[in-house]
């Protein structure tokens, strides 16, 4: 490979193709950069900022930053881990993430990334926002308490399923996930568990009804090994403890 087509990531040479982002190149090279709103099956969103890296001394989201020859990229430094931990802590206090009472616990990307960056406590003052739970759909449950506004369900429903079931309404701290129907209820849509939108949530916002807690504690997706080894829950087949339908 020529010198023009590589950058260094934490001292390791990573090849890339023209137009690839730092995240996409790292992923292809098997190097994990923690992320939440990024899913390789969708165009990058750049909103969660967890994939922040230092590119030639400047902080950038690796999922949107184009890879360029000779870049010096830092990811696993204590400075960046500290920033990522702070972002995770803010995400945890902004919603109601009660892991002991969540069916997604153990196979939750938000939780797994928080483990990965070494978050022991949420540090900040909890918002305890009051958000509804939508149980109107016969097969799916929507718990808005756990939404981190990654918009993966919005993108999947609009771009893959062609149903446009979800949207984000409001701005800033008032931004929140809504269902695109006059009643705002999921039960009034043609949403189905086989939709792509049902498989991409990095948290426990969208869950299937009629089953739960089937995998015992100790055997769940992220119980034994961290997310950089196991992979994203949305990328793994249901048979492997993930959410993707093959």
């Amino acid at each position: 490979m020529s010198e023009e087509s590589t950058f260094t990531l934490d001292g390791r040479k990573v090849p890339f193709r023209d137009g690839q982002t730092i995240m996409a190149a790292a992923l292809a090279a098997g190097v994990y950069i923690p992320h939440l709103c990024f899913n390789p099956e969708f165009p990058p969103h750049g909103s969660c900022r967890v994939c922040l890296v230092k590119v030639n001394g400047r902080m950038q989201a690796s999922c949107t930053a184009p890879a360029m020859a000779g870049q010096v990229v830092q990811s696993e430094t204590e400075e960046i881990r500290e920033i990522r931990r702070g972002i995770l802590q803010m995400l945890f206090v902004e919603g109601n993430h009660v892991c002991p009472a969540c069916e997604k616990s153990g196979a939750c990307q938000l939780q797994a990334v928080a483990y990965y960056v070494g978050m022991l406590a949420p540090h900040y003052t909890h918002f305890y926002p009051r958000r509804p739970v939508d149980a109107s759909h016969p097969d799916a449950l929507l718990d808005f308490n756990r939404c981190i506004l990654c918009e993966l369900c919005v993108r999947a429903s609009r771009d893959v399923d062609g149903k446009n079931v979800f949207a984000v309404q409001g701005r800033g701290i008032k931004a929140h996930l809504v269902v695109n129907t006059p009643s705002g209820k999921l039960g009034a849509t043609d949403f189905s568990l086989s939709d792509k939108a049902a498989q991409v949530c990095p948290t426990g916002t969208i869950l299937s009804k009629h089953s739960g807690y089937e995998i015992p504690i100790g055997q769940r997706l992220y119980d034994r090994k961290p997310i950089n080894v196991v992979g994203d829950v949305a990328a793994l087949a249901v048979s492997k403890g993930g959410r993707r339908h093959d």
Binding site: F92, N96, H97, V98, A101, L120, H126, Y128, R130, N145
Partner: peptide, 12 residues
């Protein structure tokens, strides 16, 4: 102790 836990669900 760390986040309020299950009892804090009454904050809803």
């Amino acid at each position: 102790a760390i986040s309020g836990g299950v009892p804090a669900m009454r904050n809803q």
